[in-house]
Design a protein around this nucleic acid. Sequence first.
DNA 1: TTGAAAGCGCTAACAT
DNA 2: ATGTTAGCGCTTTCAA
Lengths: 349, 349
Amino acid sequence: MDHSSPHTRKKNAVTIIDVARESGVSYSTVSRVLSGFEYVSDDTRERVLAVAKRLGYVANLQARSLAGGRSNVVGVLVPGLDNGYIIEVTRGIDEELNRQGYSLMLYTTHQQHGKETQFVSAIANGLCDGLLLVVPVVPDDYLDVLQQRKFPYVLVDQADSTRRHNSICSTNWQGAYDATQHLINLGHRQIGIITGRMDLSSGIERLEGYKSALATHDIALDERLIYPGDFFQPTGYTGGHHLLGLPTPPTAIFAGNDLMAFGVLQAAGERGVRVPDDLSVVGFDDIPYSVMMHPRLTTVRQLLDEMGRVAVQMLLKHIEQPESTPHHITLDTQLIVRESSAPPRHLKK
Amino acid sequence: MDHSSPHTRKKNAVTIIDVARESGVSYSTVSRVLSGFEYVSDDTRERVLAVAKRLGYVANLQARSLAGGRSNVVGVLVPGLDNGYIIEVTRGIDEELNRQGYSLMLYTTHQQHGKETQFVSAIANGLCDGLLLVVPVVPDDYLDVLQQRKFPYVLVDQADSTRRHNSICSTNWQGAYDATQHLINLGHRQIGIITGRMDLSSGIERLEGYKSALATHDIALDERLIYPGDFFQPTGYTGGHHLLGLPTPPTAIFAGNDLMAFGVLQAAGERGVRVPDDLSVVGFDDIPYSVMMHPRLTTVRQLLDEMGRVAVQMLLKHIEQPESTPHHITLDTQLIVRESSAPPRHLKK
DNA sequence: TTGAAAGCGCTAACAT
DNA sequence: ATGTTAGCGCTTTCAA
């Protein structure tokens, strides 16, 4: 009786039944001991636990989950792994999940919207106890599915104006306002911006913050100084070249995030434009690499890992109490002034 | 009959039974249509598929997996998300997995060895069809478990001298040799090194490559120029400070990876040591940020994402043929010369 | 406090 | 080509 099917691999694992046999109790008692704190005598509990340990028993998550229990797995939906910002958030998520005894199932959508919907459905009737959405949620379609099924989820880095969902984000508007005002206070008047993705609330809000700061200080908005970016390094690079090639180039550039700011630094370097002497650059996020740049990048710090951690806490709370009303948390941002920003040349003494 | 248990959430998903009822066939026929290309008439197949689509049916992975089928999930074990190198490999893994219709379950061990063993057991009798180990596998303990169960796995970035396991890695020795020789050819004689972790084959081999290059060119090994690092930025930083603070500091430093090289650049900057004029720096990996540094980093390029992709291909092949003998693949490295390395000062004209 | 038994949704023999 | 049935390992009633 050898392996007839190709699925021999899913075999001979130590199961709850083995433990039951060894410890001389019924197999549901073992289940009780293992999964809960039901009414089991201390005596049998200890015995079962000892046997389980001796046999090296490890629960089969899928069986547990199928049978209606918790799987202790949380799904995380991200657009991709190619942005330092995502990494930081995910790192925070991972750490907290770990601390709480959960595993992490990572789904990358690669920006394919159909895929997202499919993923979400799969996740909702799958292994996961909850879902963390770190993706741009444009249409509400799959959120409805989640709501219907009362499946716990949290929108991460999303400003949910409807307050229908659990969500968390940073003060993007304020951060951008602070960054822009910092440049204005230094004496800059020609301030360019490379925006983030405009289908993300963070992208929109940062542009708004920039505009508001200009308005507050009576600086006319110059559309030519607004370059549409996408939060990735290459558009920072091309945007930097574009802005610096203008007839009257800006003396400062606010990049929608650090990665694009790096692109600006590179473009400036290639054009012989010196930072911060000839050009001030400010980013957003404060990813770890920002402090390794030369010059070190002035930026708006977001507690990205903290955002991940808090998101996990929100989710787990929601898993405990599926009926609780949606919450929203906003994390403060903080301007970190380093060497990439300085007064414009004409103001230097 | 309302929600008595807290597990109401795992309900009312469209199942294979609903599809069967709607399309007027038995429920195993639906299974056949959905999971395989068995002998089903084109007629029923189309009908079932149509109904499934209309009802928004999504397979329940855990049930499928429990019942002995494929889950199309691959587990990836990584030490953590805090190293650019891991990210790149994981990105490659993710992309290829995605391309092949697999999902990715991410486990981070956070360097706790007990955890690793536990994870591996859980994974082996769990949802995953296979496992990718991107972690330092010091003792063979859990690999034995995998072997016993004939559970498919691949060691990523591990030189497996025993050839007992499927594995893939880069030419670490050669890469380090090339890097060191490059510095020697530029005229450097005092060449420091900040090593990687010595419990990783990559760390060991890179140090060996460095030593061999020195030996080949009749340069005496100076133990004082060897600083033990760990592949993270901070040790590059402290190591850089240490080496540059030596009575006769090196004129060049080979860092075991880019992240540590960034630390060296930072330390040099703080000490007023100019790169490459006063100090040449070479890294290893060529992570995306290396080209964003100032000066741009000379480094040894590893095709990290490619490594991830190939690892996935190996794994899937092994999942298809669990009895196949272990393979090992070695990927070439390539020296990328940029601006952080130059002849030492005394050789400049 | 414990045991027996009914599924969770699915796959894979085994029939037909 | 399709239907029937027995589990996969576990949780959770229901009885005892």
